[in-house]
């Protein structure tokens, strides 16, 4: 359980590092479509930050009840 949670988190953050920097960000680097009025690439970076909350929660639960 712990091991798989750590792997999952490691893969998430490695993917995030690629997805929010060049060249990984390129396919998502557009203004449209707007997400709740926010340009797409801005929402893209925000979504990775928001997603990390879920990943951390999962990781935390693997260590502490």
């Amino acid at each position: 359980m712990k091991r798989s949670a750590v792997w999952f988190a490691a893969v998430y953050f490695a993917t995030m590092a690629v997805a929010i920097t060049f060249p990984g960000i390129r396919p998502f680097n557009t203004i449209q479509p707007y997400i709740f009025g926010i340009p797409f690439v801005f929402a893209w970076v925000l979504a990775w930050v928001g997603g990390s909350l879920v990943v951390f929660l999962f990781l935390y639960r693997a260590y502490h009840k």
Binding site: F13, M16, A17, I20, T21, V41, F42, V45, L46, W48, V49, S52
Partner: peptide
């Protein structure tokens, strides 16, 4: 400015 948003959780 998005770089500031990105690096915090990383």
């Amino acid at each position: 400015a998005f770089y500031i948003l990105g690096y915090g959780v990383l």
